[in-house]
Amino acid sequence: MPTTLPLPMSQLSDEVRREGFCFVTADVMQPLLSSMGTLADWPDFAQSWDHLGPDPYLAAKGRFRRRRHATYTAQANGTVALAPHQAHYQSLQYNALQGDIERWFEPIDPAVANSGSLHTILAFCNDFFSTLAAHVADWHVEVHQFRIEASVDAAGEPTPEGSHRDGVDFVLVLLVDRHNIDSGTTTIHTPDGKPLGDFTLAHTFDAALIHDPRVFHGVTPVTPLVPTEPAHRDVLVVTFRAKP
């Protein structure tokens, strides 16, 4: 198991230990990812957001977004492997809007789930989060592709459940694309609501790294800059939870 991280990763891990989160700009994040593996297939990876299915559970609440989901297993600082497709579950404690139900989403396309870009992202997460939790031997990993669409009639809601925790150990939120949208500001709070910081994922590869047990996070609604044109915010969310 490595005992040190490259300097930028070490600085980021120190910030997460100290603050419970950090915002990573694209000019830092993209080289860090490239140091872990290939991003050669990134254009195809990003284009896969054009083929996400609707979230039927959110639609039942009168809201709309698109998503796909996959699960992996990871050995700390080691192998990451795709697991059989399974439900996504959160308790009401962590998701007051859709908790205590098994939610079955369309699986991430196999070509995307096994792509070089996604495995590079997962390798980065495994190294980074395993260093922050050296006692963990194995991880349960979930990957979510999200597209939030906005129109002149309805703002897009990246976090319709409001400021929340995900009920995991660590979270990566990575911006893949944003087109013709305004706002979408990430806000970080203490459990009692004290604001700790805010930032906007504005460029491809901008990212947030979050120690979920310590802080709450949310994202403000997005609206179109040009009302007559399509508008969307595409993100990849990766969560790591220690296996018992």
Rank of each mutant, 00 (worst) to 15 (best):
M1F: 10
P2G: 05
R18M: 12
E19Q: 10
F21S: 11
C22P: 00
F23Q: 04
F23M: 08
M29E: 01
Q30K: 03
L32A: 12
S34F: 05
W42L: 03
F45S: 15
F45G: 06
Q47Y: 11
S48M: 14
D50Q: 07
P54Y: 13
G62Q: 12
G62F: 08
G62I: 13
G62S: 08
H69G: 15
A70F: 15
A70Q: 00
T71N: 12
Q75I: 00
H85F: 03
Y94S: 12
G99Y: 15
I101D: 06
I101A: 13
E102G: 03
F105Q: 04
E106K: 12
I108P: 02
D109R: 12
P110H: 12
A111Q: 14
V112Q: 10
A113E: 02
N114C: 07
H119W: 00
T120Y: 01
T120Q: 02
I121G: 01
L122V: 07
D127M: 05
T131F: 00
A134K: 13
D138P: 04
V143A: 09
Q145W: 14
I148C: 08
I148M: 12
D153Y: 07
E157S: 10
E157G: 06
P158I: 05
T159D: 07
E161L: 10
H164S: 15
V168T: 11
L172D: 04
V173F: 02
V173E: 01
L174G: 02
L175M: 06
H179N: 00
H179T: 06
G184D: 01
T185H: 12
L196E: 14
G197D: 04
H203D: 06
D206S: 11
D206Y: 13
L209P: 13
L209D: 06
R214D: 01
F216E: 14
H217C: 13
H217R: 15
V219C: 12
V222F: 13
E229H: 06
P230T: 05
H232I: 11
R233T: 11
D234Y: 09
L236H: 03
V238S: 02
R241P: 01
A242Q: 14
K243A: 06
P244M: 00
